[in-house]
Design a protein around this nucleic acid. Structure first.
Lengths: 216, 216
DNA sequence: AAGTATATGAGAACTATTCGCATGTCAAGG
DNA sequence: CCTTGACATGCGAATAGTTCTCATATACTT
C-alpha cells in the first residue's frame, strides 16, 4: 500500500539540476535546463517529480504570492524574499524570532505551520528602475515588458499617427483611417496603455518612440 | 495622464458585497453573489474591479499560497490563517512582533513589505477528519474529495471486479473484460489511487465500498 | 449637450498545472 | 533469464484561474 520511490534517471537529473541552482527555479525553468541533458523529458514528468520529491521531503515546494510555484533544494526552515517586478525569489535571513504557533490566536484552527515572505525589488530591478525613471505611472500598469502585439485596427491607428507631424485628435484619426471614431478612441486607449502612444495635450495624441519602433 | 476612478454601479455593488462578507472570498465566489443583484455582470468586470480597487487601496488582494486570489475588505495590516484542506482563509491575531524590514538581511533587495501566513486545518475540516479516520495514507494523495469520474475503460474494469466474489489478478480481469492485460493493470492503478479498488494481497485486486457506490 | 475618458459584457486567449492513457522500465520470483 | 506487476514516462488533451480584446455603454468635464 505504501509506494516505494524509485530513483530513475530523470528523477536524478531533476534533483541534481535543482540542487545546483542558486535561485529557486520554477518548474519550467528547470524543464528548459533539463531538456539539454535529457531531450526527451516531458514537462509533466518534471512537474510530477518535483511534486513527489517534495512530498518525500527531499526538496521543498514554494508557493509564493500567487504566481508560479518555485522549488527549493533546501528543505530546511528558512524564509524568502521575492521581487514584485521580476518574481525572482531568494533566501533571506532574519533575526526576528519566528512567530510560534502559540503566539497566534487560532480561533478553532489547528495550526501546523507558518510562512514568512518579504517582498520588494531585487538588486537588478532596482537598478533598472533607476535607469529609466518611467514617465508617469504607466510602468506599474504593465508588469511584463515584452513587446506588445497589435491588433489590425491598432496597427492602422498607429500608422496614421506616425504620419502626422503633430499631436492630433481622434476625429482626425478616424478620418485618416476610415474607422469609426468610437473605435479609434478605444484603440488609442489600448495603445496608450501599452506605451506606444501618449497624450501631450488632453485629447490630443502622439506616437511615442516605442510606438515608432514597433511599426518598423 | 493619471486616470480618474469612476464610481460605477457595478463597482459599488462589488465593493458592498465584499465588505459585507465575513470571510475572504475569491473572485468567483463574489461573482456568484453579485450576479444575484446584477444578473448581467461579467466575471471579467469583477476581476477588473477587484484589481482596480485594490490598487486604489480600498481593499486588499490576498495572494496566499498558490491557489486562487482572495480579497479582503480590510486594507489594514493584519495576518491570515488558511486551511490546507478547504482553502478557507481567516484573519488571525498574533502577539509576536512583526518582523521589521530592518530585521532581515536584504542582500541588495529593497524590501517594501512582509507577509505572514499561518496554515493548518480549519474547525470544519478538523471535525470532518475526526469523523472519518481515512484508512491508510490515501487521503493525503487525493486532496479533493469530489466524486471521481471514470473513463470508459475504468468503468469496464471496475464492473468486472464488482462481479467477482474474491480478489483477483489482472489477468483474470483482462479475460473478463476483453482488454489487454497491460491496459487493465494501468487502470487498476488509477482506480486504486482513487480509492475505488484496493489490493488485499499483492497483485490481487478487489473493489472497495466506494467503488461499489460509484457504479450505482 | 457634446465629447472624451473610462467602464462594461461577452467570449476568446493565455498560463500554469494536472490528467488520461499507452508504453516503458525496474526488481523480484518462479 | 523471463515474466509479472508496480512504478515511471511521454505525449497530448483538459482544466482552472485569470487576463485580454473589442464593440458598446456610461460617467464626467466643459
Amino acid at each position: 500500500m505504501n509506494r516505494t520511490l524509485r530513483m530513475t534517471h530523470q528523477r536524478e537529473i531533476i534533483l541534481a539540476e535543482l540542487q545546483r541552482s542558486k535561485t529557486h527555479p520554477t518548474a519550467d525553468e528547470l524543464y528548459e535546463r533539463i531538456k539539454k541533458k535529457l531531450p526527451r523529458v516531458s514537462l509533466a514528468t518534471v512537474y510530477r517529480n518535483l511534486e513527489i520529491l517534495s512530498e518525500a521531503g527531499l526538496i521543498k515546494k514554494l508557493e509564493i504570492s500567487g504566481r508560479q510555484k518555485r522549488f527549493d533544494w533546501d528543505p530546511g526552515e528558512h524564509d524568502h524574499v521575492y521581487c514584485v517586478r521580476c518574481q525572482r525569489v531568494d533566501n533571506i535571513e532574519t533575526d526576528a524570532p519566528a512567530p510560534s504557533v502559540a503566539s497566534a490566536q487560532e480561533q478553532g484552527y489547528r495550526i501546523t505551520g507558518c510562512r514568512i515572505e518579504f517582498f520588494g525589488l531585487c538588486p537588478k530591478c532596482l537598478q533598472q528602475q533607476k535607469n529609466k525613471p518611467s514617465k508617469g505611472e504607466r510602468a506599474m500598469a504593465c508588469p511584463s515588458c515584452t513587446t506588445p502585439t497589435l491588433s489590425e485596427t491598432q496597427r492602422q491607428v498607429l500608422e496614421a499617427l506616425a504620419n502626422t507631424s503633430e499631436a492630433c485628435g481622434s476625429k482626425e484619426l478616424a478620418a485618416a483611417t476610415g474607422l469609426e471614431s468610437k473605435q479609434v478612441s478605444c484603440q488609442l486607449t489600448a495603445l496608450k496603455n501599452k506605451g506606444l502612444v501618449d497624450s501631450p495635450i488632453r485629447c490630443k495624441y502622439a506616437i511615442t518612440e516605442q510606438g515608432k519602433s514597433i511599426l518598423s
